[in-house]
Amino acid sequence: MQVLPAGQPLLPQPAVSGEKRGGGGGSFSEMLNNALKKLNDAKVNADDLTLKFFTGEVQDFHQVAIAMQEASLTMQLAVEVRNKVIEAYQEVYRMQV
């Protein structure tokens, strides 16, 4: 049974995949930027909620726990995507022309 790499099903498919030259590149870097921005937002939100909890502004710990967990998972996803991208690049690099 083949376990699909985690990066694939979760990434949105680039709208136009091989039709324009470097089209994959343009939307891919956008995608990466979006992903990094989301990751940053998640971490900022988690930090913000943590501080708010300890100053008493936020009373429910579950909100902090949820934010931290989601930031952690987003980070994990980003790391996996990075690994897959590097693998894919290396494979292309190794191709005999």
Binding site: L10, Q59, Q63, E70
Partner: peptide, 25 residues
């Protein structure tokens, strides 16, 4: 790439908020 916004997870998170509020009430 929004892992956390499917209905069940959103409903669970809101349920937690409501439960904490209800505890206070």
């Amino acid at each position: 790439m929004d892992l956390f916004s499917n209905r069940v997870m959103v409903a669970l998170k809101k349920e937690l908020d409501a439960g904490a509020l209800r505890q206070r009430v």
